[in-house]
């Protein structure tokens, strides 16, 4: 194998990446959109506008943005129950995600899915999978379809890449190992992105995994396993760039372990009593959005006015999304059974 067995941590030397101002601002805006969207969800949830289990992504934005903003529209993204922000990064309009959370007909899943079941076929956003690990085989199938499309259907163009996101708790589930095996066997163009936020609800990662360094598990299956600082969007992007390239070229899958942290509880229903204050404060101090902002300002890539403008436009976008969701119609009861079967 040509990849390094161990990547030195932290991979945070942002200056190594020569990104244009435009690209940096796209990353900044995407992270801000993710953060503000989730904050808005919390508000709406407490106002009784959205229901059920709502899992927020605050703190982990660098992972979604760092990976997904590298992908093309034809590429695929597969997520978990903590899926709003992955969908936003993939380009699903915030108004349709918001409307879904409000249970409205204009939601991206027509109000049938809810927070944990965000889907959008036009954006190749595969879901929205609420059980641990069940999205991994589905993502693996999308990646299988990519090589099938090229080799059997002889479709021209580059391989479509699938990015499959899941958490540290998932890596103790059999479907994770089974799919690593199959993805390497068939050299599938897939990136397994572990968002290691250290906690599976109340189960600390080190209490549930015999080898807590998840990236090391890749070696047993013969794929590169790379650990990266998941609080640094540029570091995530740097690692993901290689993984996307590798997948695109037909060289097979990569496992990325992004070390990150959720700033809120597991869901809005979680009292979050087990994580210590010191632990939370240490991670909040490493806020990925503040980090990128500092990078942009310190290197005079953009002015604080420009960044404020982005913040304002994100805020307006979200206010309009809430307005859209509020004013959208409820699904029609007469269509209760619609979508159960497809027409032939």
């Amino acid at each position: 194998m040509s990849y390094p067995k161990k990547v030195e941590l932290p991979l945070t030397n942002c200056n190594q990446i020569n990104l244009t101002k435009h690209k940096l601002l796209v990353l900044y805006e995407d992270m801000l959109l993710g953060r503000n969207f989730e904050d808005m969800c919390a508000q709406m949830y407490y106002k009784g506008k959205m229901f059920g289990f709502v899992h927020l992504y605050n703190g982990q934005e660098a992972v979604s943005t760092g990976v997904i903003k590298l992908l093309d529209s034809k590429d695929y993204v597969c997520s978990t129950y903590r899926d709003h922000v992955h969908a936003l990064s993939k380009g699903v309009p915030s108004q349709n995600v918001m409307a879904e959370l409000f249970g409205k007909e204009t939601g991206c899943s027509r109000g049938r899915g809810g927070s944990m079941h965000i889907f959008s076929a036009p954006h190749n956003f595969l879901g929205g999978f609420a059980f641990i690990a069940e999205g991994i085989p589905v993502a693996t199938g999308a990646a299988f379809q990519s090589i099938y499309r090229q080799q059997v259907l002889k479709e021209p163009g580059e391989l479509r890449v699938t990015a499959c996101f899941f958490g540290d708790g998932t890596t103790n589930n059999g479907q994770f190992f089974e799919c690593l095996n199959m993805a390497v066997l068939w050299k599938l163009p897939i990136i397994f992105v572990v968002e290691n936020n250290q906690w599976a609800i109340g189960m600390a990662h080190h209490r549930s995994s015999s080898i807590p360094e998840i990236h090391k598990k890749a070696e047993a299956f013969g794929l590169p396993g790379i650990e990266v600082d998941g609080m640094d969007v540029l570091a995530v992007r740097q690692v993901a760039e290689k993984a996307v390239e590798r997948a695109r070229q037909g060289q097979g899958p990569t496992l990325i372990e992004a070390l990150t942290y959720r700033f809120r509880g597991h869901s809005l229903a979680d009292p979050d009593e087990l994580r210590s204050r010191q632990e939370k404060e240490a991670w909040v101090a490493r806020d990925p959005i503040k980090k990128l902002k500092k990078h942009i300002l310190d290197n005079q890539i953009a002015s604080s006015d420009e960044l404020n403008d982005i913040q304002s436009s994100v805020k307006i976008d979200l206010e309009q999304s809430v307005e859209f969701a509020m004013s959208s119609p409820e699904p029609n009861i007469s269509e209760l059974k619609r979508y159960l079967f497809a027409d032939n």
Binding site: V138, G141, E178
Partner: peptide, 24 residues
């Protein structure tokens, strides 16, 4: 590739078929 022998991993290869089905 069209007649794919899989490892003995029923839940995963069934899920894989589902992923392939929703993508065409």
């Amino acid at each position: 590739l069209r007649v794919l022998d899989t490892p003995i991993a029923e839940n995963s290869f069934t899920g894989m078929a589902i992923g392939a089905a929703i993508t065409g």
